[in-house]
Design a protein around this nucleic acid. Sequence first.
DNA 1: CTTGCTCCTCTAGTCACTAGAGGATGTACG
DNA 2: CGTACATCCTCTAGTGACTAGAGGAGCAAG
Lengths: 141, 141
Amino acid sequence: MQQGITIGNVSQASGVKVPTIRYYEQIGLLPSPPRTEGNRRSYDDRDLERLTFIRHSRELGFEIDEIRTLLSLQDQPNVSCEDADAIASRHLADVKQKIASLTALQHELERMVVGCSHGRVETCKVIDILADHGKCKYHGD
Amino acid sequence: MQQGITIGNVSQASGVKVPTIRYYEQIGLLPSPPRTEGNRRSYDDRDLERLTFIRHSRELGFEIDEIRTLLSLQDQPNVSCEDADAIASRHLADVKQKIASLTALQHELERMVVGCSHGRVETCKVIDILADHGKCKYHGD
DNA sequence: CTTGCTCCTCTAGTCACTAGAGGATGTACG
DNA sequence: CGTACATCCTCTAGTGACTAGAGGAGCAAG
């Protein structure tokens, strides 16, 4: 159990930027670590794990509040994991929805770029399609 | 060319919320319309078109600044559409990247939810996978 | 001992809105 | 003509998740 890791090192090791770590402390997502004599934050391996967990969750698109729940679950392993499951499932549905939307959007953009006459704006499909929603097949969020 | 449309009606017709329309005016994305005697904003069909263009572009994920460029292009049809093409192409690349990331994420979440033992947190894959980045195949944006 | 890096706190800015207060105006109905 | 009530007005402040910058203190190497 390594102790006394500087914020710079824990940042490097976790992949979370230094100001972001301080921000997480400020909003109570990461506990305030002890300080050295010179008032520097002094982290240990548990903090590093927690930060890695947070970064990974953020990358996967979970919101801070969801991560808060996930972290509190992690802290008490004897509890049912129904909540974690629910959060992940809801998120999965969101992600599927987003993929569907983006795929439609991709086709739309491809249609635009291919349709662009590479000439004057007058005849450019990109502008055209954006101006007239009716010509567009994309209707999701 | 209909004139004297209220903000509420232009909002309904364009699908852009009233406060958002005022916000667009504030940031100079939509020109300030004339006012009635009672100081109400009075829009016309051009404004409605412009708002529809903006909403559609936003739905497709373009940023305000990109829309600004697109709109200024739209205003001068004699200019080459290279810029519009470039914006759309760059955006298309982004979208493809996002789809790839989200698809990886989808698999990851499916793995989580399926792997969830529906029991205690101790043995729950959702928490497990989030805690240990090494077990994860997802490494995108 | 000095150079230069890392760290500290604090405030303010980002993006694209959204919410709410407090007040004026316009319209439909009796 | 009066009165509800919807819609409008301006203005300020809040959101989420950071990011940037000012101004200063501590620390390690040469």
